[in-house]
Simulated scan of single mutants.
Amino acid sequence: MGRRATSVIEARAAAATSAVSLTGVTKVYGRGSEAVHALRGVDADIRRGSFTAVMGPSGSGKSTFLHCAAGLDRPTDGRVELAGTDIATLSETKLTKLRRTRVGFVFQAFNLVGSLTAEQNVTLPLRLAGERPDKKWVREVLGRVGLADRAKHRPAQLSGGQQQRVAIARALVTRPDVLFADEPTGALDTRTGREVLALLRQVVDGYGHTVVMVTHDPVAASYADRVVFLADGRLVDTLDAPTAEAVADRMIHMEG
């Protein structure tokens, strides 16, 4: 077998095991002297069925990394493959459809609709896409996040942790390739935050989903399989099987 054929096979094998792949991704906001380089030639590979935490000092490019990886923003240069698709090749309409059907989002703010029940909030992405919710699947997803008995409750009747569980169920209901979480425990107390992190861990271990989480908290990062560290828009380090102590130590050295 020739070298070219071998490289093609290897590339296909890598694509089959990757949920998200960033190659030479650069993101620049503004022009000329006002230009801000949020990302500078970032290469990263997020494997299917893994839990990855993204960390770095303030202004390191964490949120831009997530936005580019999730298709919320297009890179200035480089390539992003999401769910096996090069997002640069997609029109805005097709990119919107990809995000709606193949990607789930969880944010620090729960972003629930107060007038809707938990179940109605979970099915909202499907309804917006013009799809008829599968009631059995919706019940299963609510059960996965421990809210089977809260389906008819509105957000005001739920605790903060329960509201974030609704948000996670809403992110999972479309059976996404990747769930992106941006500081998902930022608005929660320590105990509730750890319950949500344990749930995200279960989403990966129990159901095979892929989770990418931006966080500033070493304890939160310790729930991940791998931590990638950004500084000044560059990916500068990675840590497998992280502990909170090891993550904190890396962050201290980065900020020192």
Rank of each mutant, 00 (worst) to 15 (best):
3 R>H: 13
4 R>L: 13
6 T>N: 11
7 S>W: 07
8 V>M: 12
11 A>F: 09
19 A>K: 07
21 S>R: 15
26 T>E: 12
33 S>E: 15
39 L>E: 13
45 D>A: 14
53 A>F: 11
55 M>F: 03
66 L>W: 08
67 H>G: 07
67 H>M: 08
69 A>N: 02
72 L>H: 11
75 P>V: 06
82 L>A: 10
88 A>G: 07
90 L>K: 08
90 L>T: 07
95 L>K: 02
95 L>A: 03
98 L>E: 03
101 T>S: 11
102 R>Q: 15
104 G>A: 04
107 F>E: 00
110 F>M: 00
116 L>T: 05
121 N>P: 14
123 T>D: 02
161 G>E: 01
163 Q>D: 01
170 R>G: 03
175 R>V: 05
176 P>E: 02
177 D>E: 03
182 D>Y: 06
188 L>Y: 01
188 L>M: 01
193 G>M: 09
196 V>A: 02
196 V>M: 01
197 L>H: 11
199 L>P: 00
204 V>D: 05
215 T>N: 02
218 P>G: 03
221 A>K: 03
221 A>C: 07
225 D>T: 08
231 A>L: 12
235 L>M: 14
235 L>C: 09
240 D>W: 09
243 T>M: 12
245 E>V: 12
247 V>Q: 05
247 V>I: 07
252 I>Y: 07
253 H>W: 06
